Amino acid sequence: MTKADIVNEIAKNTGIERVTVLITIEAFMETVKESLVQEKNVYLRGFGSFVIKKRAQKTARNISKNTTIIIPEHNIPAFKPAKELSLAVKK
Rank of each mutant, 00 (worst) to 15 (best):
M1Q: 07
M1A: 06
M1D: 02
T2R: 02
T2I: 09
T2N: 02
K3A: 08
D5F: 10
D5P: 06
V7G: 00
N8E: 10
N8R: 05
I10T: 00
A11R: 02
T14C: 07
T14I: 09
I16F: 02
V19T: 02
V19Q: 02
T20H: 12
V21F: 02
V21S: 01
L22P: 00
L22A: 10
I23S: 13
T24Y: 06
I25T: 02
I25E: 03
A27I: 11
A27K: 04
F28R: 01
F28I: 14
M29F: 15
E30T: 03
T31G: 10
T31L: 15
V32K: 03
K33D: 09
K33V: 09
S35M: 11
V37H: 09
Q38E: 14
Q38T: 06
E39F: 10
N41Q: 03
N41S: 05
N41C: 11
V42I: 07
Y43Q: 09
R45K: 08
R45E: 10
G46M: 11
G46C: 10
G48A: 06
G48T: 02
F50Q: 00
F50T: 00
I52Q: 04
R55A: 11
R55L: 14
A56I: 14
K58A: 14
A60C: 11
A60S: 10
I63R: 03
S64K: 05
S64I: 14
S64R: 08
K65A: 14
K65V: 13
T67C: 13
T68A: 12
I70K: 13
I71G: 07
P72L: 08
E73N: 04
H74Y: 12
N75M: 12
P77G: 12
A78R: 02
A78W: 05
A82P: 00
A82L: 06
A82F: 12
K83H: 14
K83M: 08
K83T: 05
S86H: 13
L87Y: 14
L87S: 09
A88M: 13
V89R: 01
V89E: 06
K90Q: 12
K91Y: 13
